[in-house]
Design a binder for these strands. Structure first.
Lengths: 210, 210
DNA sequence: GTCTATACAGTGATAGAC
DNA sequence: GTCTATCACTGTATAGAC
């Protein structure tokens, strides 16, 4: 885990920092920012409160640090598979769809999304950081993929950016909002949504002669 | 405003209750649940803290009351227009799209969405109430519209529920998430997204012979 | 850096006078 | 119903010893 070492070195050097960030992450997600006390964070981390303050400048800075670390973690999940260019359009879109849905319906992703949306009003920079680390990154990947397919005459499309947003939006459908609100989502419905979105997209944009 | 009168009568009878709910709504949205104190609510409402407690059983109950009232308010925005059946498929979907986007991108809707998502982990019932009052209501309306169109041989569709989710998801695209995260959304991009979603939907599902 | 101990304002909630 | 005054407790943040 070289990342841990780097982070620790950057900030001054021991595993306690990770303990504190882990504890803070758990409590911020479980209880929300406002209801989480620095006492509780210190207790869960197994350190004293003064140690918490030695590692970060107050509660807001700690919250920002937690969010940035989590964003960096989910980023890895958000890149679309690298082998899609070797596939035909339909199976490639299926792969992208599966990868995307796995990423955004993962419990950790949903928890982070809730936390960021919850506090984005009070921490304006947070929304942008999260967007660019997660959904914005996937969107950009899909846009690039669509541009390549357009260059190869596989699809007929003017605005790849808009089409990519439309595709990812159709994949989310109603179910992502349901999941973000804590409502149950059946795996069958998710698979059906993915298939319908891919089929519709192909029906609309694929160039007939294959 | 008969609704105000009804609410007041139901709960025991004076404008103070509305003042308290208004103050609580503002502070919960601005500061979040955990960071909002009952003192602050009482001060903004212009009453004493004891009066707040006379009108509701504690902070959680007050939060639930605020959310339910706001959900009821946005519900009115969420019904799709009643005259869509007299229109052809394409203009009807455009109307539905415009109505839907106006509703979900309204600042009040976004603020409520943030507040509900933020606390849905701690108040499990909240997510369901909100969903059924707002996005679930629209979804059901669109499902019924699509079923009528299917009965009239205007569209070829197996699963109207899935298709409706897909349509609304494509309308949201990437922009609704951006807005929920507090990022700027250009009106042009929104209009483009709407047009693309409707065109794609028609291209996929409309029966050719009109 | 880490801990124990503590300062002191602010928290949700209530009692009792009017 | 409404207020003032107050409860017991927790909040963020810091001082000083090791």
């Amino acid at each position: 885990m070289p990342d841990v070492v780097n982070t620790a070195l950057m900030q001054g050097g021991c595993g306690k920092r990770e303990q504190i960030l882990d504890a803070a992450k758990r409590l911020f997600i479980e209880q929300g920012y406002g209801s989480t006390s620095m006492d509780a964070i210190a207790a869960v981390a197994g350190v004293s409160k003064a140690t918490v303050y030695a590692h970060c400048d107050g509660k807001q800075a700690l919250f920002a640090a937690v969010t940035e670390r989590e964003c960096r973690r989910v980023t890895a999940r958000m890149e679309i598979p690298g082998d899609v260019d070797t596939l035909a359009l339909y199976p490639a879109l299926r792969r992208i769809a599966d990868s995307f849905l796995d990423a955004i319906f993962a419990p950790e992703s949903l928890a982070l999304l809730r936390m960021v949306i919850a506090e984005s009003g009070r921490f304006p920079a947070l929304g942008r950081i999260f967007y660019e680390c997660a959904p914005g990154l996937t969107l950009a990947s899909v846009v690039r993929y669509l541009e390549r397919m357009r260059d190869r005459q596989r699809i007929d499309m003017q605005d790849c950016h808009c089409a990519a947003g439309q595709f990812l939006g159709a994949l989310r459908g109603d179910l992502h909002l349901r999941a973000a609100l804590g409502l149950p989502v059946e795996r069958e419905a998710l698979a059906g949504q993915a298939e319908a979105a891919v089929e519709t997209f192909v029906a609309r944009y694929a160039i007939q002669g294959r």
